[in-house]
Simulated assay, not measured.
Amino acid sequence: MSDPRVLVCGSRRWPWPATVHAVLNRLATRYGEHLVVIEGAASGADRAAHQWCLDRSLGARHRCHPVDWDAIRRSRPDDWRRAGPERNTRMLLGERPQLIVAFHNAFDPARGGTSDMCLKGVLCAVPVWLVPGADLRAGRWLSAKTFPRGRVGRVDRELGNGPPLSDYSPQ
């Protein structure tokens, strides 16, 4: 990564904050003071990344994107759930990460906020590494083929990426 910007996302019930810290420690060792960490200020994996950034005083290199769920529920009672995917899009397009690391021990390519963030990253040509448990070495790279074809098309249209991916073939 020439511009070391990593976006951390994952389960709100992620039970292994030390794994998030270990991944960020490795990236910090490689990229030093240039590393920028982006996260959505949720519980679980995001909170572990947030704490890591605070412990290291990253300051402006820590890019935190909270959603005020109470305010959103009041102002948009019929579609407040869209605030999470909208935040994901803002983080991706506004922050321009060069890597997404997702921490989820029950990852479902068909649904959920982590899946939404990962798919959006894949569709915007950002490499996405999924860590499914405490052992960060057990991770895998995600591709459009990881996700249901209908979801790929829908999210691709939402992002305004034009025609659907030509390399998609169902698993």
Rank of each mutant, 00 (worst) to 15 (best):
N105C: 10
D79P: 07
R154D: 09
S75E: 15
L54M: 13
P164C: 00
D116Q: 03
I100A: 07
D55A: 14
T114I: 04
E158G: 06
L99F: 05
R63N: 08
A42G: 10
R74H: 14
P77A: 10
C118L: 05
P127A: 12
P66E: 04
W141L: 15
W80P: 07
D108P: 07
S143T: 15
P148T: 01
H62K: 11
T146I: 11
R96N: 06
R81A: 06
T146F: 05
V122M: 10
F147T: 05
P97I: 03
C64S: 13
F107K: 08
L119C: 04
V126S: 13
L123N: 12
K120A: 12
D55T: 12
I72T: 14
L99E: 02
C64Q: 13
P97R: 01
A48T: 03
D135G: 06
C64Y: 09
D70P: 01
S75C: 12
R157F: 09
M91R: 03
A48H: 01
I100D: 06
D70N: 14
R151T: 08
H50F: 09
D70E: 15
F147E: 02
W52P: 04
G160W: 03
M117R: 00
D116W: 02
G59D: 14
L99P: 08
G150F: 08
R90M: 10
V152F: 10
A48N: 07
G153C: 09
R154M: 11
H62N: 09
L119W: 06
R157N: 10
L58C: 11
R96W: 05
D135A: 06
D78I: 04
N161C: 13
L54N: 10
N88W: 04
D55I: 07
G162S: 11
S166G: 14
G44D: 00
N105E: 14
D108T: 05
G44Q: 01
V128G: 08
H65F: 15
W80A: 13
D116L: 03
G84H: 04
N161Q: 12
A106N: 14
V128Y: 00
P163A: 02
W69C: 04
A144C: 13
L99C: 03
K120V: 02
D116M: 00
D108L: 09
W52I: 09
L99M: 04
W52K: 07
L130Q: 09
R154G: 05
R56K: 14
Y168S: 01
L159K: 12
C53L: 07
S43H: 08
W80E: 05
L165N: 12
P148W: 02
A83I: 03
P109D: 05
Q98C: 07
R61F: 12
P77M: 10
R154S: 10
R154W: 10
G84S: 14
D79K: 08
L130D: 08
S57Q: 14
G84Y: 04
S75M: 10
V128W: 00
